[in-house]
Write a protein that binds this DNA or RNA. Structure first.
Lengths: 330, 330
DNA sequence: CTGTTAGCGCTTTCAA
DNA sequence: TTGAAAGCGCTAACAG
């Protein structure tokens, strides 16, 4: 490799000291950096351009002991629920001119904890944890511990999901959203719920809300992973006389509807279906999917804004709104 | 903030030299690092744990002059086409235990070039550029120049899209895929094409392939952005007597189908529709969408594997396979 | 097997 | 306004 030009090289080429070169090239916005004469300044800029100089971000981070970096940890980037949130995070990061390192952690809090430790190693200024808390108390405790380490190292953490972590929290109204679906389903004779993994707090909240909204408990519970195919399979597992199904994510619901249809059941004549999240594509199913709207992109944006802005951890509720469409008779 | 513990602190706490601490904590896998006595080793590990020590990744990168980092530049993470590719990249990065910094660049080559320069500044080992080349010769030239700088700095670059950059290239068969749709549409009387922005090479390739497959040129061309709503609007813009429409992305096609339906046209009785990409959700449209399958997740995985593995830039074709479904009469 | 020490490239006082 | 020099935290020879 052609060794990367260093500030040293630029300074030399411009015939100035390395300090001067630093001031004109990477000088912080602070007033003290503008103090370079126009003549030298021009020479430095010119030399930098000629050499294709780019500051070594590591060295800068080390010297400044701060790194314009935010970590984004989410369950699965291939799921639109998460990629939409990610898109909001990226937009804000761009505004703040921060880089973002991303990782898919799955649902294991220990994996998230490990990544968070790595982020601390990178001296990231912020970390956004997107996804559900779990019922693994031990795991959650370790994650919380790691969040505290991160915060102690002057990092800002924000979580999109349930409260429970010592960090900013954006808390979608899973219970309320579930309840709205439950109320909407009142009067339907035989109700099924397609849930995600039971260890996820999100799943519990949505289920609990749903049942309280429905006003009774006789539902059939089918557990699936949060995938399209999981939803499809769940449609085979549901009782034949089901007249309404609450599927806990839009991605699952999408597969679920197809599964139902392949089984000869009609939506909504035979079965009402409702999802959760309101990702864009569910409007285009036929019939369009009734679902609970979450402002996903904004949630991502908000989470980073919060992390970067607010000093004291805040918990902020995010309203979840039932959107009734054709899949439940609209 | 509680100052982060340094290697110094750990060494002190363990009563050993900083070198020893370094060897046990961050020692490269090379044989020379295992040479620490079990006794001291244990003391160091213990001290590190007590202090919650995490190596400063910046300092490490600087000292080692290499950074286990890959950059991922794509048009729009909210689009499943890209998020699926991203998911493949993340999986491989995880295997290699590399971090990935991600950025949405839109379609402007200069934005990508700027991000690439930043990646060079971070001494990233690899960069994956996902997205179409454009017809902006000047912009592409600047991007190519930047790729060369990146490579010169010992970085590996891989591109998912068209050839044209001095890097590894994973080249989906856009022309062939388009042609397959064209052949499939032969015999349909009035054909429309919903294209993305004309400045994208991908769009040109798919269109060119389509026309050659169709065997004639009298199609109606509607240009839209690559969004769901763009597809929906395009459905209003297409001639009323259209009997077949090739929509150049699945996301657009998804909205397009709804637009057509809202306009009173039936799929496939009145209009055949085909998309491109085969993202998971299009199987669940009714009728299911005919489309051109691209192995998106694998493409992402392959791109990074290639970048990390192969020295000499290679161009690899990725087959695109027509999948006929209900939206075109299957 | 362990410790000393010279950098890695940049920022930032402190003097001049 | 400019330059000299002391680190930032860690790695990697080189000595012992």
């Amino acid at each position: 490799m052609t060794r990367q030009p260093t500030l040293q090289d630029v300074a030399q080429a411009a015939g100035v000291s390395i300090a001067t070169a630093s001031r004109v090239l990477n000088g912080s916005a602070s007033a003290t950096s503008r103090t370079v004469g126009p003549h030298l300044r021009a020479r430095v800029l010119d030399a930098a351009r000629r050499l294709h100089y780019t500051a070594n971000a590591q060295a800068q981070a080390l010297a400044r002991s701060s790194n314009p970096l935010v970590g984004l940890l989410l369950h699965d980037i291939a799921d639109p629920y998460f990629s939409l949130i990610a898109s909001g995070v990226l937009a804000v990061a761009e505004e703040y001119r921060m880089r973002v390192v991303i990782a898919s952690t799955g649902t294991d809090p220990d994996v998230a904890a490990a990544h968070l430790a790595a982020l601390r190693g990178q001296r990231a200024q912020a970390a956004i944890l997107v996804g559900s808390r779990t019922t693994s108390d031990a795991g959650e405790a370790r994650l919380a511990e790691e969040v505290e380490q991160f915060t102690a190292a002057d990092g800002r953490a924000a979580c999109v999901g349930q409260p429970g972590l010592p960090a900013h929290t954006l808390c979608p109204d899973n219970t309320g959203g579930g309840a709205a679906v439950g109320r909407h389903f009142r009067g339907r004779s035989s109700v099924a719920v397609v849930a995600g993994p039971g260890r996820l707090q999100t799943v519990r909240d949505r289920l609990h809300g749903f049942r309280s909204g429905l006003g009774r408990l006789e539902d059939t519970l089918v557990e699936a992973d949060f995938s399209r195919d999981g939803g499809y399979r769940a449609a085979q597992a549901v009782p034949a006389d089901t007249t309404a199904a609450f599927v806990m994510s839009d991605v699952m619901a999408t597969g679920f509807c197809t599964g139902l249809r392949d089984r000869g059941l009609r939506i909504p004549q035979d079965v009402w279906v409702a999802g959760f999240g309101d990702v864009p594509s569910v409007r285009d199913l036929s019939p369009a999917l009734t679902t609970v709207r979450l402002p996903l992109v904004e949630m991502g944006a908000r989470a980073l804004t919060l992390a970067l802005g607010e000093e004291r951890p805040q918990t902020i509720g995010v309203p979840a709104e039932l959107v009734v469409r054709g899949s439940s008779g609209a």
